[in-house]
Write a protein that binds this DNA or RNA. Structure first.
Lengths: 241, 241
DNA sequence: CGGCCGATTTAGTCTAGACTAACGAAGGCG
DNA sequence: CGCCTTCGTTAGTCTAGACTAAATCGGCCG
C-alpha cells in the first residue's frame, strides 16, 4: 500500500474527529473542518474510498473503514505524543502547541516517534488530558461528562480539554481548569447560562459556552442522572487535540 | 515574500552544498544531487531566479544570490540542529539521522527550533562536527585538510565527517574516526592508495577513498606544504551533513 | 572549418490537490 | 403537489513540481 499523503492523513484524522460513534460525516462538515471547499472533499473521499479507507455512499456522507480508523488513530497517536513532547520536554505553552504538532505529526518517522516516546517514559495522556493511543491504535475509553452540563452540587475531576483554540485554553488554565483539577458545581444559573464553580478551592464564574469542551469525571456520591448522557467523543467543535 | 516550498528549500540547500567558493553549479550536477531530471532543474532554477534567490545565466549554471545563500544557511542550520537533537537528546545513531533531519528541517517551526536549541544549550557543532550556523546565518570557518591527503608523519585532530552515507559513518566510528579523535599518519603507501594511521593510539589501515570526507585540523610542528590546499568546503560527493 | 557529443533547454504530459461555476437531488413549506 | 433552498456533485481550471522526448548550443577533435 502506498503511504498516505499528508492531505489524506488529514482527511482520515478529520473523519475520525468528527465521526462520533457511527454516524456518517457530512461533506460540508468535513469541508469546514479542513478549511477546504466541498468539491475538494467529494473528490478526496472518492480517492480514499478507492483505497479502502472510507465508505462513501454518494450524498450520504462518509465513514471510516477499519483500515481508515487505524490510519486515523495512528495520526492521533502521533499528534498527542508530539504535543506532550512540545510541552513536557521543550517547555512550550500547552495552549500553543497544536499547530506545531499538526505539522510535525506528518513529518516524524516511526523511529523518531519511538525515541520521543521512550524519552518521555511512555506517557499515557497528552497535556490536554487526551489519552494517547498505543502503537496498535487502542485508546483508553473513559466515562466523561461535559462540565457545562453537571447539575448543581456535583464534584468532579477535570480530565480533558477538548479544544484547540489557544485563547480558550489559556483562559481555562487561568481559571485553574487543567487536567487533574478538582471542581465543584456550586450553582447553575440556567437562565443566565452561568455556572458558579469552585476550582481547586477557589470560586469561579463561567458561562456555559465558555467551558464547552471541558470534560470531567464525576466523583463522590452522585451518579449520572437521566438526561445527562456520558460522552465518548466530540460535540460540535470537536476533538481536535 | 512567499515562504519557500519544501522543494525550493531543497534546491537552495543543494546549491549551497555544491557551490564551493564561487563557481556556478552545473544543472546536471544539481540534478544528480537532488535525484531529479535535468529539465526539472532548469525549470526550478528559472522560478528561483524569479524570486531573486539565484542567478541563472542560461547554459552557464546557477549561483546563489545573497538572499539565496541566506535561505540556504537557514536550512543548514536547521538540519544540523536537528541532527544534534536526534543524536544527543533522542539517542539515535549518528550514522543514521540524516534522513530524519532532512524531513524535519522543513517541518519544525522557528519556535520549536529555538526551544530545541535552548534545550541543548546552544550547541556549536553537530554530531559530525559541522559548525552550526547562528540564527543570522553566520558559520564558523576553519582551516581543515582532508585526512586522505596528509603527508606521512602528520599529527592531526579529526574535526568533520563530510558524508551522509550511514555505512561509511558507521565504519569511521568503528575505526575511531570521530570528531575530536587524534590521528597520526604513520605511513602513506601512495601506489596502493593506502594510509597507515594511528587513531587514538591504535593502528589502523584505510584506503584513501575510504576516508574521503574525513576532515582534520593539523597539529604540532608541521605546517601546510605546497600543494596540499586547505579546503573550505565540499569535494565531489558533498557536504550534505 | 565541419562534425560530433554531451550538456542544457524547450515542448508537451502527468499527478495530487486545490478552486469556482453550475447542475441536480431532496426535504420543508406554502 | 409543486417550489425553493440547501447540500452535494459534476465539469472545467489552476498550480507546483515532476517526467520523457526532442531540439539546440558549444566545445573539442580531426
Amino acid at each position: 500500500m502506498t503511504p498516505l499523503t499528508r492531505s489524506k492523513q488529514d482527511y482520515v484524522k478529520a473523519l475520525w474527529a468528527l465521526g462520533a460513534a457511527d454516524a456518517p460525516v457530512a461533506t460540508s462538515r468535513l469541508a469546514r473542518h479542513l478549511a477546504v471547499s466541498p468539491p475538494s472533499v467529494t473528490a478526496m473521499l472518492r480517492r480514499l474510498a478507492g483505497e479502502g479507507l472510507v465508505t462513501h455512499a454518494p450524498r450520504a456522507g462518509a465513514r471510516l473503514t477499519t483500515a481508515g480508523a487505524r490510519a486515523a488513530l495512528r495520526m492521533v497517536r502521533r499528534h498527542r505524543l508530539l504535543e506532550t513532547f512540545l510541552v513536557d520536554v521543550l517547555g512550550l505553552d500547552w495552549a500553543d502547541v497544536h499547530d506545531d504538532a499538526e505539522v510535525l505529526e506528518h513529518a516524524v518517522s516511526d523511529r523518531v516517534l519511538a525515541a520521543l516516546e521512550r524519552l518521555m517514559g511512555n506517557p499515557s495522556e497528552d497535556p490536554h488530558g487526551h489519552p494517547i493511543p498505543d502503537a496498535r491504535g487502542r485508546v483508553r475509553r473513559r466515562r466523561l461528562w461535559p462540565l457545562a452540563q453537571l447539575p448543581r452540587g456535583t464534584r468532579a475531576t477535570v480530565r480533558e480539554m477538548r479544544d484547540a483554540d489557544a485563547r480558550r485554553l489559556t483562559r481555562w488554565k487561568e481559571l485553574g481548569l487543567v487536567p487533574g483539577a478538582d471542581v465543584r458545581v456550586r450553582d447553575v444559573r440556567a437562565l443566565d447560562d452561568v455556572l458558579e464553580l469552585e476550582v481547586a478551592g477557589r470560586r469561579r464564574v463561567a458561562g456555559r459556552a465558555g467551558v464547552e469542551g471541558v470534560m470531567v469525571e464525576r466523583r463522590g456520591a452522585h451518579r449520572a442522572r437521566r438526561g445527562s448522557a456520558p460522552s465518548g467523543r466530540g460535540r460540535a467543535h470537536g476533538t481536535r487535540g
